[in-house]
Write a protein that binds this DNA or RNA. Sequence first.
DNA 1: GGTTCGATATGGTCTGACCATACTGTGGTC
DNA 2: GACCACAGTATGGTCAGACCATATCGAACC
Lengths: 232, 232
Amino acid sequence: MDDTGWRPVKRTRTFEDVLAQIERRITEDGLTVGDRLPAERQLAEQLGVSRSSVREAMRVLETLGVVSSQVGRGPDAGAVLTSRPDSALTDLLRLHLGLASLEMREVIDARHMIEQWAAAHAATSGADTSALAAALAGMDAARTAEEFVEHDTAFHCAIADASGNRLIAAIMRSLRDSMRRYSVEAVQRLGDTSVLRADHVRILEAVERGEAGEATRAVSEHLAHAYPALFR
Amino acid sequence: MDDTGWRPVKRTRTFEDVLAQIERRITEDGLTVGDRLPAERQLAEQLGVSRSSVREAMRVLETLGVVSSQVGRGPDAGAVLTSRPDSALTDLLRLHLGLASLEMREVIDARHMIEQWAAAHAATSGADTSALAAALAGMDAARTAEEFVEHDTAFHCAIADASGNRLIAAIMRSLRDSMRRYSVEAVQRLGDTSVLRADHVRILEAVERGEAGEATRAVSEHLAHAYPALFR
DNA sequence: GGTTCGATATGGTCTGACCATACTGTGGTC
DNA sequence: GACCACAGTATGGTCAGACCATATCGAACC
């Protein structure tokens, strides 16, 4: 061991300090969704940094779906704390898929896992299933693959919502969004969507009857129908 | 319906244009991890925008774990494409937990889901399990709850890695990181970690023998032991 | 009371400068 | 030729100050 006890001095960029201070204020002061942060110029002066650094920190928070900035003047203007993890996750997945650092197979496997979990929990939670039925009707009325996928996504996200876990629902949404194009192609390749319709009805009924095991199986087989190339 | 067909003009900020162009370059030119983006000043001139806007776009990409910026000069300097979804996910979860827009219960449920899936797939993938054994030894040598949790995290992340799905492994890492403090408290409350050790051995042996069902059950019961307050 | 219009606070953008960092190349030294 | 010291330079990081677009507020006016 030639460990001298020295550690590399971590280069801390100004905007990272700003980020840390804002995060500290959030946790210590118990700030919550809807609260406003100070204006950029004011924050810059209070922290003794330039407005650019504050802005870069804001950009980070906005990217993570924690704040939302509005121009103008008034109660709604400025940086407001929000909670939009969905778009952040979607951007993250889309970019990493574009970089080929993630493969579609991995995304679909993750979806498989989540959908099974969500269906089982939706079945046992006894949550409202009207959104599911509405999405089903939307799929019946769809005239293009794009429309079909849109309502199909709504159906599956509604299951995730019904599971009662917002984190898993957010991940579900992001996974669907990031593979939207792929789903449209899969539906077009499939042509006939009657198989998928029967699957959806089966899932819906299982959830409504509270049969978690059947819901899990139904979802699993449904995904196998929808993406046969990946489940051979 | 008084819908006139008008839609609000989407305000597009300059840095969002920059982001879109960079993303287009990534997908169209097939840029991949390790490739360098043009320097900030150069990019600003090419796109006809100010350097501030380019920098804000860079900050977004860095937040999403897609680029990494290095100062100085040379082959490694500048903005390099990377693939670090872990830290992005961790930041996202930590901030949303701090905002109380997510509850620990939801995070732990998500972990439960992922760990079961990962253990089953690790068992059937036949991947290397030496990292698991090493983490187990680390836990035995741990003298504080913090040290124990560190190696415990390594153990569970190694399972996720062995499942072969990088996305799920990344989510797993982020979940563990964001609840690190909570895990330490849980271990301290528990006091005796021998129960956890037996659980880990059981999981490891199930994975090594390729018994997916047993691995799933072992993980599930392990989490019930580790977080009894949440599995009552 | 309603309307109009200027004042103002906010984020968005740009310019230009300077600093710290880390490589590059040059020239000298041995 | 090998090595080393040092100036040059390209890079990101930060700052100050200005201007613009937007949205509200408020006073003056009808």
